[in-house]
């Protein structure tokens, strides 16, 4: 239940893509607009706020039934928790960065280097999110696992699947389409003439890409990366399925403590931290993005 609440948060937050400021409603329509906001607010309250409140409350209740901070103190000071936070952040940031890079590259190839079969490739990438995470992990096991195809070729020297790198690779594979798809759409929006004119002004393809194409898709890239960041911070299935022993992220910790060892209050603490961490990552990302956006604009001036 707490895990669901956390993943629910992940899916809801990026509904407002970075960089697209919603237009402020005119004063006269303000009240009606507020009315429109009511249904989604009720849904959010029901499916997110209420369970979250329960989880938060649980984390402050001792086994005896009275209020306590002991659970928090115990959890926060435990080494598993510290390691879990670090792992979660590292894997989320790594997955987001990897997806941004690879997704951008793939989107560029699909959009600007049309080769035969390009539609097949983009179609395949498009269905990737429909594939359950465990299937990807399974295919990874067949490919890179200790008894997998690659190891059969290399003589068993490959051993990364059960490390954080394996998790990272699996998450990047699973989440890259979330970056690639919106980018392909964004690239398609750039008028051809703009690229032509940039080239006629003396810009080599590399400069056109860097100074004309990428800045224009920055909002799309930011929103997509944000989404991946949040999904990766809350990813549970892949980590569990790979079964890497030392890759214990916060969602896995919630699962272990809440379901396996029945330490429900401790699991609630971790769940709350996971939610806060997600929101924090999101906030930091937005902040970094807007800061860099401003600096970039200034550099362009001279």
């Amino acid at each position: 239940m707490s895990v669901e609440a956390v993943t629910g948060a992940a899916q809801e937050s990026p509904a407002v893509p970075a960089g697209t400021a919603p237009a402020a409603p005119a004063r006269g329509t303000g009240r009606r607009a507020a009315l429109w906001a009511l249904p989604p607010l009720i849904v959010v309250a029901d499916f997110f706020c209420y369970p979250l409140a329960l989880v938060v409350a649980q984390s402050f209740i001792a086994e005896t039934g009275g209020p306590t901070l002991a659970v928090w103190a115990d959890v926060v000071t435990s080494p598993e928790f510290g390691a879990g936070v670090a792992r979660t952040v590292l894997i989320a940031v790594g997955a987001a960065a990897g997806c941004a890079l690879i997704g951008t590259f793939l989107a560029l190839v699909v959009s600007f280097a049309p080769f035969p079969g390009v539609r097949l490739v983009s179609g395949l990438v498009a269905v990737l999110p429909a594939v359950p995470g465990f299937l990807i992990v399974l295919s990874f096991t067949f490919l890179y696992g200790s008894a997998g195809a690659l190891n059969a070729l290399l003589g068993g020297s490959l051993d990364f699947l059960y490390t954080p790198w394996g998790v990272l690779l699996a998450e990047i594979t699973l989440f890259t389409p979330f970056v690639m798809r919106p980018l392909v759409a964004a690239f398609g929006q750039i008028p051809r003439a703009r690229l032509d004119v940039a080239a006629s002004l003396g810009a080599r393809p590399w400069r056109v890409l860097w100074q004309v194409v990428l800045p224009e898709v920055r909002p799309a890239l930011a929103a997509a990366t944000c989404l991946v960041l949040l999904m990766a911070a809350n990813e549970f299935g892949i980590v569990l399925f790979i079964g890497a022993k030392d890759v214990v992220t916060l969602p896995v910790l919630v699962y272990t403590w809440g379901i396996v060892t029945f330490d429900y209050p401790a699991a609630c603490v971790v769940a709350v931290v996971n939610v806060v961490l997600s929101l924090l990552l999101y906030g930091v990302y937005r902040w970094v993005l807007s800061g860099r956006g401003k600096r970039r604009a200034r550099v362009d001036e001279d």
Partner: peptide, 15 residues
């Protein structure tokens, strides 16, 4: 060559 196209194709993110 200097080129001016029909819809100008200015770079929207630059001043």
């Amino acid at each position: 060559i200097g080129v001016v196209v029909q819809n100008y194709a200015l770079f929207p993110h630059m001043s």
